[in-house]
Nucleic acid binder design. Sequence first.
DNA 1: GGGGGAAGGATTC
DNA 2: TCACGGAATCCTTCCCCC
Length: 905
Amino acid sequence: MENHQGAVSSSSGADLLSRIALNDNKAGMEGLDRDKINKIIMETSKGSRFYENELKKEQQVNQRIEKMMEQKARITEEQMKQAHAEVDKLTCELERSRELSRVIVHVDMDAFYAAVEMRDCPELKDKPMAVGSMSMLSTSNYHARRFGVRAAMPGFIAKKLCPNLVIVPTNFDKYRAVSAQVREVFSEYDPHFMPMSLDEAYLDVTEHLEQRKHWPETMRTHYICDAKTENDAERSAAEPEKDGLSPVLFEDSPSSSPSLSGPDRKAEVFGTSAEEAVREMRFRIEQKTSLTASAGIAPNMMLAKVCSDKNKPNGQYRIPPERRVVMEFIKDLPVRKVSGVGKVTEKMLAALGIVTCAQLGQQMALLSLLFSGTSWHHFLHISMGLGSTCIERDSERKSMSTERTFGEMSDADEQYSLCKDLCHDLAQDLQREGLKGKTVTLKLKNVKFEVKTKAFTLQYAVCTEEEIFGAAKDLLKVEIDSVSPQPLKLRLMGVRVSGFISAEDKKPLQRSIMGFLQKGGSDSSSFTQCAGSALKAEESGDGASFLNPQSTEIKVPSVSEQTPKSRGPQQQSFFQRAQLKRLQQQREQMSVIAGTDTTNNSADAAAAAQTDLPTTNTQSDTTSAKSLSNTNSGTDATCYINKPAALKPSFEISTQVLQCLTCPVCNTEMKDVNLTAFNNHIDECLKGSAVDNEPTDLDAAEEQEELNSKPPASSSESRTLKSSSSNEEKPSTSIAVPLVESDDSSDFKTPFFSHRTKISGKRTVSPKKKMPLSETSSKASHTTRNLEAVTEMSSESKGSSLTCPVCSQPQSTDDLALFNRHVDMCLNQEVLLEFRESHPPVDHSDAPAPKSVKGQLEDQGRGSKMREKSKRQGSSALPPSKKIKVLSTKQTIDQFFKCSTRQNV
DNA sequence: GGGGGAAGGATTC
DNA sequence: TCACGGAATCCTTCCCCC
């Protein structure tokens, strides 16, 4: 689509109002009487709230510029010298890696919406027309542009500029249909083309051109008319003079080139060059849709985009893959022409005397001192004519939102009702794409056009209306309360969900509690396999209480619910890969027993792993919420045993195997134990009754020694324990229970709602559930002894470069697997110590009720300035002593990561 | 000083 | 006559916390 904002000519004489004045940086708008047009725009806008707000924003930009100039004045020669050196160095590096081998094409349909409407309604052809409404236009035809009417202009202003303007309402279904036709053509030149909107796309035609070289002429011959769209008969009748060519817009269409005249004008032969291929593409688009497109051909996306605008409408431009030509092209190019440089950046650069890309390059040292690294690196790329040469395919969506503008709305009930409607719409959209996100953002625009956004990050991903509304309504309430007793006067409300789990589970995350408790997770992946928090109380109805106050059940996120689309092996989440790996291992294990060959079964395993995953719908969420799953390789499960029914088939196999397991609490190894017994043992240990199994220092030493003597691979074997057992197994009472602090437990509706808990974001500690002092100290000393045992062993080390980030003791080994295992053990001890201190044997029915967003916000003293208060949420969620403990555990992991990086784990 | 969440801004179509 | 959108992404700034 077209660029809505743009440069305001300095000759407009309206510097202060550059935000409002006409942006004529657009095809078809050259040579207009800007002063006259701007006068009309100003007269129409002046005094409105919109105008006042724009004025305010303008002043803010001016202040930014002032600050920047002050900063510039303080720059010393020495700083400039250093900056020059840095810029030169980076310039050399970038120059060395300059890529000129790709042929990137940017195709942009000309005045797309307007062109479609004119095509379908030929009487509009000779009239100034625009698509949109009285409040906003999406685009305009070239007749209208002569009056200064353009996209992103309110219809009522456009009418002032051009009283005869015909405004046609948008019809997105139609545009989508046409867009699909255009994309069919694109796909023949690059099957992986990257659509940017309905009317534009990037293509990498490098491969196509290679193949094209060998194509016979017949494959490069295309015919006019007959193969056109079904509607052409009607359209041709309406426009006989065009003889089937583009009926509405432009004279110099690709199909009206001289080669088409004469007796052979029904056929067109295209050459093998990039220009010819793109001309052919445009020709075919026109034949198929009766619409014209413009295109840019260049070695990278940034240049291709600029080029497509060069000969608009209905033209194309190519920058050949030569550095000299690129630099020549860039030299006089206004920075504002480059995608990503908007009106604010343009103005700031202009204040520094920078208008063209060449000037940008000349001032790079200065820019590096005045702008952020990201910004000036971007500037440097622009000034060198560099851009992306790799068209990113299938990039994942990061957020989804819906918003609505309306007349002034002051009634709170109405506002809540609207909020609910928005949540409903958004939930439908999310569910349609199988997305769930953890952050809910409420966007509000008041009648003064001031925009506010309020966000809340939940502990788990949501997608239902009730869940989203549960958060959004509380955010709304905070805003309503903040202006009370005055009404909150709104003109826009929007709701957004972001932080989709699919994106998150790719990141290395900290371990969950269960991760800590699993003995043996000592390979490097054990520290990176934990993903997304899992705890969730079941949702309530209608958002009245955000989360079910009674529920303390735990939700384990499924893999498929996190991934909007199916993934190839490389795109699988850790969960999927781990599960697949385990499945394969188990199959191999079983095949050894059964004497079968499983070596060719990886595809089956993959399919099984995929199909066995829980599904994306809410139903399955409930299922998984009701079972305490351990199927995520201990990554997130908060109970050691049990699994959702959906996963049963994959893991049936492992339930038959008795295993050699080690208690994560007392470190006792239990041979040939079934999992029920093992779980019971752990429960006893946690309750402190399994004193018989309490390891002595000697035990710990033996354990350590054993570890040292074991090959690293063995560690993974012991971890298969978590994928076994059956549904009848009683969920263990203790570890699975989220620990929640509450000063007023009656007020809590969910325990999993704090901002800054650090262990998988779900662990806070209840000060009200403390052990009797004696017991606490006893348990503490127990744990301390264990820790000491580990530490003692560690401290014997000499000459190792590894130091445990938990106990700070140097380790005797350089084997990273063993080192990891030691850290795991230390972490286990630490978590257990904390757990025992804070958590006596738990009665589930007694668990503090979850708390609503509002409750938390209010509790944390949010009244006037929510932002400030929201930032204290983490600190208010825990008493200092507890919080430090939890955070320190996270810190050790962070330290470990740093350490791991250094050690190339 | 760095990580990370929240809020706001810039930019695009 | 009144009257300036919707969706998405990325970046910056602020601030808390370690």
